[in-house]
Design a protein around this nucleic acid. Structure first.
Lengths: 107, 107
DNA sequence: GGCTTATGTTAGATGTCGCTAACGTAAGCG
DNA sequence: CGCTTACGTTAGCGACATCTAACATAAGCC
């Protein structure tokens, strides 16, 4: 979850993520919509991808990107935990603990 | 929401926030639980407070801190938006727009 | 193989972050 | 007022992040 929050802490990366939330776009098309150089966007895409927030799909020379909602799962749990108290939170923690055996990492 | 994400991107600040999620604690007591100097914690507390994630209450020379769940509202909306599609998202955006007039800032 | 298109990677400059050490402030007590 | 306790604030340093410019890779076309 650390990588995900660090990735989202950058405003431009949030914009990129929102841009590919509903549509799949090539890197160049994404870069074209911002006022920075293409390499800068490429680096942002790398950060987002390594944080598990982006899905990359290659097609010829193009690389198409799309947001991966599953990547925000850990963050969602963290945030949701602040709207709960007592028993409700205990219940969630039990479920999280139970699901831990099924996942490799990505805490 | 930018300040909130930047604040949460630091692991130690998340630990602090979880520490005062259910209980109200004085700054010194919080600092005592970490392996860094007191000023460092004080700075973290300032960042969290300015991000609207902490509530400060003074009592004599002591300053008591407690997590403010409302501070995570913007982030919660952002995250939730990635689990929705189409009409459901449109509905939320309409509600957000309607509520905008009632709040001062804290986007 | 050459040329173009699409993209990633690296080097280096600048900015920002988190830490410690030293100093400042403010409340309570005698 | 002087002393103590509890915190915040500032200066300065080392580490890391973001940007641009230049170079590298890889697919498709002729």
């Amino acid at each position: 979850m650390d990588a995900q929050l660090k990735a989202l802490a950058e405003p431009r990366r949030r914009k990129i993520l929102e841009l590919v939330r509903d549509q799949e776009l090539p890197a160049g098309e994404i870069a074209r919509r911002f006022a920075v150089t293409r390499p800068a966007i490429s680096q942002h895409l790398t950060v987002l991808r390594e944080a598990g927030l982006l899905i990359e799909r290659r097609e010829g020379t193009k690389r198409l990107y799309r947001a991966d909602p599953a990547g925000l799962l850990g963050l969602k749990r963290f945030v949701d935990r602040f709207w709960m108290t007592g028993l409700e939170r205990l219940k969630l923690e039990a479920e999280t603990e139970a699901a831990r055996g099924e996942r490799k990492d990505q805490a």
